[in-house]
Design a binder for these strands. Structure first.
Lengths: 257, 257
DNA sequence: GAGTGGTCTAGACCACGTC
DNA sequence: ACGTGGTCTAGACCACTCA
């Protein structure tokens, strides 16, 4: 139980190992307070910096949170929200006055809200190349910040080539109740095929701030490219999902696999 | 460009901010060396611990790597490998002597290898409940460690209820060339439907070690449940994918969305 | 051997939460 | 008022890399 100061493994790593195993084993349950830094210093005869290195390690693994004047605590696994990426049936959206996401969230008994911002931009390079934009060509961006029960939930940016949507409702800074996808269909670019790419990374400071993401929590970056019947990319949607609040779910039948 | 010691923002955060923006802006390109700790101490008139706090922050964001005796460097974005979760056509597997994953990797011009380990275990709670196992009921686990071009690539654990596979080839500790899924089909449990769940988190120390994952790199946890024609869960596959080496990709047609 | 990061100590002041 | 974590300093020794 004690610590070997002559081990080749750094003191602070040994300390982190012991605390971590107490968390994994359940001896320290979610929400439980860890010993104070003072106690750990005394117990392991280590300096405060060393103790804080160990605690910082756990925080960066997403295992603990801390607060000035409070203490260090085992992170409580937040109640998880599902992102149903494949909806049960496509016709549902037609039967409601809300967009697909709002309907999804309401069906889970939560309260959704979102702000929408529309602008004309040069998209990031990876998006521009997926949309096959020429050098300097622009796209309409509809950016959403979504909240559930008042807590920030996700960040979503949809890009549409101006050459396609330049005169449509999509460039208006309003919520489109029937869905932007329906507008695309109305102007002759119904999406018939999608490619999804999912990456994971640590959040940028902007994302940490906007979505109130704690230390040690990664984000999913979910990117969806929509193609019309002529196999032209008409929409790229990039969604940032804090990983402590989201499980991405897909339903597939064996023909697809 | 200088730093305000009277700002409410901590010194080490300001320092991290400046270095980070140099990385994002491209002034410090991937592979470039950051100033040495000594130089930063002099330049910003800060103590070494403060400088190290700033550099540690960047490392935890996955932006930099460092090594004793070498220096701090901007992380080079590794060449990314695609995990094609939906293959182009299902018949391909029948035409080759290799399993689906091996075929995928070879088609990308890389060299795959894997070790397989088979055991009878009580699965983790979430898996047990997806398989609807009774209290104490066991499952066969086929665990793979996969490498590509000699580098560790992914960790995969497939669970099959013993009540279904207890007498089949699946519990033999050998590679099954025609695929375990085919064996399942042969014993009357062809999978006709899948549910995928994708989560992201920081790796455990075991995963960091086995897959050689650097600090600040999260992992995808990809979980696939396979159901047979009677809608019984016959297989749960959990795959751990280091996020710096993997993009998860899905292809969907509009009928599925 | 010189320079780099990795680890560790001892002490200090401050901001915040709780009582 | 007191105890907590947040920030910062000044110094030390060690292990590794590279010329």
């Amino acid at each position: 139980m004690a610590i070997d100061p002559h081990s080749s493994r750094a003191l602070y790593r040994q300390l982190a190992d012991q605390l971590r195993s107490k968390i994994y084993s359940g001896e320290l349950r979610p929400g439980a307070q860890l010993p104070t830094e003072r106690e750990l210093m005394d117990q392991y005869d280590a300096s405060r910096n060393t103790v804080r290195l160990a605690l910082g390690q756990l925080a960066n693994e997403g295992l603990t949170v801390s607060g000035r004047g409070r203490g260090h605590f085992v992170r409580t696994s937040a109640p998880l929200l599902f992102l149903a990426t494949r909806s049960e049936s496509t016709d549902r959206r037609a039967t409601t006055a809300n967009d697909a996401w709002t309907t999804d969230v309401v069906s889970q008994g939560r309260t959704p809200a979102q702000t929408i911002e529309v602008s004309i931009v040069r998209p990031p390079e990876n998006v521009a190349s997926l949309l096959e934009l020429e050098e300097g060509e622009t796209a309409a961006m509809r950016k959403r910040v979504r909240t559930v029960d008042g807590e920030p939930n996700s960040l979503s940016m949809s890009y549409y080539p101006m050459s396609i949507v330049g005169t449509s409702e999509i460039i208006q800074p309003h919520d489109i109740v029937r869905g932007a996808n329906r507008v695309l269909a109305e102007i002759g670019h119904d999406q018939v095929r999608y490619t999804d790419q999912i990456t994971a990374r640590m959040p940028t400071p902007y994302e940490q701030d906007t979505l109130r993401i704690g230390a040690g929590i990664p984000v999913h970056e979910h990117l969806r490219v929509g193609y019309d019947a002529a196999d032209i990319a008409v929409r790229v949607a990039v969604t940032i999902l804090p990983a402590d609040r989201h499980i991405i779910q897909y339903e597939l039948t064996s023909a697809q696999r």
